[in-house]
Design a protein around this nucleic acid. Structure first.
Lengths: 189, 189
DNA sequence: GCTTAAATGGACAACGTGTCCGCTTACTGA
DNA sequence: TCAGTAAGCGGACACGTTGTCCATTTAAGC
């Protein structure tokens, strides 16, 4: 682009390789559990060397985060500026229910990504978690719920990918049943 | 014990080594994050060989589970036969609140164990999770809550060790605040 | 005591990780 | 158009962990 940009531009080959890595990783993660995919597998599939891979992504988790990023951004945008009940305008309880439903749809498509990639507490360190947290917290405050700080994480906990996958696969529950149960949680407001 | 027991008794040295392993593992897990403790560390600290360790415990997770087992059993006993509101007799909502409070106390002491030991979905495969699930489900049924199957896991999700540690450490919340937030969840019944 | 089968423990091979450094390639300014 | 330069590349390497295997030891039964 503009050669006079103050921030040094990313070199063309670097950009190409990043795209290749992300594409290859997405294919591999879709095919088998992320923790069974080695960094070497990804490098091989992307047609880049080991060092190139490590330069950008120090571990599997950071690759998974990068893959999730775009999908999460879209939902974040709708929460901020979309139509009610997801966006501003509807009563807090309805917005929370809409948020739950939207998150379930996100999980249905991408839970396998974040799952197993050395999750654990990693999930909370994602920028995305902070966003969901701030959003739900603002709904709690708007609803006048007392001491929202502890309740936020409590309400966000059922959206953990492990929980969702357990409900779907091991328990054989459908998306609708899960959404219904989550919607019931909005009574705490 | 009785030499005529049909089920072959565990040999004396085997029992001694199991005790050693559990004791050593508890000390190591208390000192640093479980995922930084190698199987070799445990074997060394317990004064047994690598093979001996693997014979009984195929991985770190199974050791952590064994360590948790006794503490969980005690709570399970109190849920089944203890005094109200934890045990039978009190209304479902109060029993659920009491269960939450008891679990928080358990987490406060032992969350570090299950945390990081290759958790993820492992948690659900524990026999203990099945027990908590059955207990809460029975409370939901007793309260006449419709379609309890999806709601159970939703209500159990905030008790995930990762969530608790995040609230305590990263968010700086106290046990009381967390218990209060969980108690609020009993409104969904 | 003697037999037998379980239990032990360390050596071993295979694997994944992360780093390092010589080589290559894309930008830049003349 | 063409060097000069710095960023980017990639494979070889060393390290640490894992899980298995089997010769040896040791407890229990007769």
């Amino acid at each position: 682009m503009c050669p006079h940009t103050l921030v040094r531009m990313e070199r063309a080959d670097a950009a190409r390789n990043r795209a290749r890595i992300l594409e290859a990783a997405a294919a591999l993660f879709a095919a088998r559990p992320p923790h069974e995919v080695t960094m070497d597998d990804i490098a091989k599939a992307a047609g880049v060397g080991r060092g190139t891979l490590y330069r950008r992504y120090p571990d599997r988790a950071s690759i998974a985060v990068a893959l999730l990023d775009e999908h999460e951004r879209e939902l974040q945008e709708r929460l901020l500026r979309g139509d009610p009940p997801l966006g501003p305008g509807a009563p807090p309880a309805e917005r929370l229910a809409a948020f739950y439903a939207a998150m379930v749809r996100l999980l249905e498509d991408h839970a396998h990504l974040v799952l197993g990639s050395e999750v654990g507490r990693t999930r909370f360190e994602t920028g995305a978690y902070g966003f969901w947290r701030a959003h739900v917290r603002s709904l709690l405050v708007a609803a006048g719920t007392p001491s929202p700080d502890a309740l936020v994480d409590t309400l966000l906990a059922p959206l953990a990918p492990e929980v969702y996958v357990y409900q779907r696969s091991d328990r054989g529950l459908g998306m609708d049943e899960i959404i219904e149960a989550l919607t019931r949680l909005t009574r705490v407001l």
